[in-house]
Simulated assay, not measured.
Amino acid sequence: MQMSALEDIRKYAPQAEESVVAAMEKTYALALRDADARQVSFSDPAELKTVRDSFVKGKLGVADSDADIDAAIAKVGEQVPGHKQRLTVYYLLAQHYGKLSVFGG
Score class of each variant (00 low, 15 high):
Phe42Leu: 09
Gln79Lys: 15
Ala71Thr: 10
Lys59Ala: 12
Leu32Arg: 12
Ala63Arg: 14
Ala31Thr: 06
Val51Ser: 01
Leu32Ala: 04
Leu92Arg: 13
Leu93Thr: 07
Asp34Gln: 13
Ile73Phe: 05
Glu17Ala: 13
Ile69Cys: 04
Ala23Leu: 04
Ala71Tyr: 03
Ser54Trp: 11
Lys26Ala: 15
Ile73Val: 13
Pro45Tyr: 06
Asp36Glu: 15
Val20Ile: 11
Pro45Val: 00
Ala22Phe: 04
Leu48Asp: 05
Arg38Asp: 00
Ala46Cys: 00
Pro81Val: 00
Asp53Glu: 15
Ala63His: 10
Leu32Lys: 09
Ala67Arg: 12
Arg33Asp: 15
Tyr97Gln: 02
Asp36Leu: 13
Thr88His: 05
Thr88Phe: 05
Met24Pro: 03
Lys99Arg: 14
Ala37Leu: 12
Leu93His: 06
Gln95Trp: 08
Glu17Ile: 03
Val20Leu: 02
Val89Phe: 06
Asp68Arg: 10
Leu60Cys: 09
Ala35Ser: 14
Lys75Gly: 02
Ala63Thr: 11
Gly82Phe: 04
Asp70Val: 00
Ala46Glu: 15
Gly61Met: 11
Asp64Val: 09
Leu48His: 10
Met24Gly: 04
Ser43Arg: 11
Tyr97Asn: 04
Leu48Lys: 10
Gly98Thr: 09
Ser54Leu: 14
Phe42Trp: 02
Lys49Asp: 13
Ala46Tyr: 13
Ser54Glu: 14
Glu25Leu: 11
Arg86Phe: 14
Glu78Lys: 15
Thr88Ile: 04
His96Met: 02
Thr50Phe: 14
Asp36Pro: 00
Gln95Met: 01
Lys26Ser: 10
Tyr28Leu: 05
Phe55Glu: 08
Gly82Tyr: 06
Asp53Ala: 13
Asp36Gln: 15
Val62Gln: 09
Phe55Asp: 08
Asp64His: 12
Ala72Leu: 08
Asp66Gly: 01
Ala31Cys: 01
Lys99Leu: 10
